[in-house]
Amino acid sequence: MPEAATGCVAPAGSVLATGGPEPATLAAHRQNGGSTMTARVGKPAPDFEAPAFTNGEFGNIKLSDYRGQWVVLCFYPGDFTFV
């Protein structure tokens, strides 16, 4: 994971355009409601880059850096939630 300066704020995570039939820019992605990048089985997982906390360090995570490995991507409602 690349070292990152621990400023008060970091750029929010963003979905990365992957070319092809999908919009070439994030602005285009927003304009059409992001509908072309909705996750589906059998289709490429939308790539993204975002700040993360990993093993005591802050740094950015990019999904496509894990190409070649099996990945389980889990979303959850929030830190300190009960379930």
């Binding site: 994971m1 970091a10 929010a12 995570g13 963003s14 979905v15 992001g34 990048m37 909705t38 996750a39 939308p46 993204f48 975002a50 700040p51 993360a52 906390f53 990993t54 995570i61 991507l73 979303f75 830190d79």
Partner: peptide, 16 residues
């Protein structure tokens, strides 16, 4: 494992 910050919800939107 990494705990990712999706502060704007943009990644979550892409995954529905």
């Amino acid at each position: 494992f990494p705990l990712i910050s999706d502060a704007t919800g943009q990644i979550g939107r892409a995954y529905g």
